[in-house]
């Protein structure tokens, strides 16, 4: 559905995006992750044809970029912006029209969407009379009003309360189920962790790693389990499959050897005492990102680390 082939974008000697390649399939929620300034927005602007890459190729729906392609993509920019003095419905119809759908269709759909996000009564109000969160939802509607096959959301949850965040998440999942591809660009990696399927981590314009979230996690999850255990803690020390035991007092942390699975440890523990809490230590995407960048000899901006 979307394919980037080693695209490069330079600004006055600074390389904002450095030979980035990725493939996004339909029916997938794809996380484009990285700290602020990593090159996410620049990448998205190139996908949208707002700016052109200096090198490389972008293919969308199997074809090279053309103006008509824009009509099949929905884009929620990180920098939100609406015409403040326009009425909500007029604005949505206008934004729908420039995405190529007829005014009437745009108006009908906008009505339905406004109901869906609980803003049905606001159609005739001006945008500036809405709260920030409401404006966010209006902007989100404008992104999906023309039923795009590819939706690119740049920091979609910024400024939303938990209820509205959930609402937008639900809609994103629905879109995915309808076979749309959704690209989530965010520096808050934990948001994508539960929602997404595939991710691409970028830092300073370069791809750090890409893949299915499950695989990435598997690859990076160290075999660590945390346990609250009443019994003789010394039993773990002598176990050949356990490489390290750290006693934190209330809890224990065990580093497992390559042949030891968490299940085996749990079975071993149950036989020897009472297990009150058992947790498989999984690294968060955030930790993986930092670990990976460091492993590659790179640096991470303070904000992330």
């Amino acid at each position: 559905m979307l394919e980037l082939k080693s695209i490069v974008k330079r600004y006055d000697g600074l390389t904002a995006v450095d030979s980035l390649s990725l493939v996004i399939e339909p029916g997938c929620i794809y996380g484009l992750l990285g700290p602020n300034g990593a090159g996410k927005t620049t990448t998205i602007r190139m996908i949208m044809g707002i700016i052109e890459p200096d090198e490389g190729e972008i293919r969308i729906f199997g074809e090279a970029f053309s103006e008509s392609v824009k009509e099949r993509i929905g884009y929620l920019p990180e920098e939100r912006g609406l015409y403040r003095r326009m009425k909500v419905l007029d604005l949505l119809v206008f934004l729908g029209e420039i995405k190529g759908i007829p005014a009437r269709t745009a108006s009908e759909r906008a009505g339905r969407w406004l109901e869906r996000v609980d803003l049905a009564g606001w159609a005739d109000k001006t945008v500036e009379s809405l709260s920030k969160g409401m404006q966010q939802k209006i902007q989100f509607i404008s992104t999906v009003l023309h039923d795009p096959q590819l939706v690119i959301l740049d920091e979609p949850f910024a400024g939303l309360d938990p209820i509205n965040t959930q609402l937008i998440k639900d809609i994103i999942i629905e879109m995915k189920e309808k076979g749309r591809a959704v690209v989530l660009s965010t520096h808050l990696m934990d948001q994508v962790e539960k929602l997404g399927e595939r991710i691409c981590l970028i830092n300073k314009g370069r791809k750090v790693l890409e893949g299915a979230i499950a695989d990435v996690k598997m690859q990076f999850s160290k075999n660590v389990v945390t346990m609250r255990f009443s019994g003789d803690r010394a039993v773990f020390e002598g176990h050949p499959g356990i490489e390290q035991v750290r006693d934190f007092g209330r809890e224990l942390s065990l580093t497992l050897g390559p042949d030891m699975k968490p299940n085996d440890v749990l079975r071993f523990a149950i036989d020897r005492g009472k297990v009150e809490k058992f947790e498989i230590g999984e690294m968060s995407l955030h930790d993986i990102f930092i670990a990976k960048v460091k492993e590659d000899g790179g640096e991470v901006d303070n904000e992330v680390s």
Binding site: E67, Y75, E79, R80, G81, L82, Y83, I98, K99, S142
Partner: peptide, 12 residues
């Protein structure tokens, strides 16, 4: 007010 980016994702 940054509308420009929304517009440019739809037209030239």
């Amino acid at each position: 007010n940054r509308v420009v980016e929304v517009l440019l994702s739809s037209l030239t």
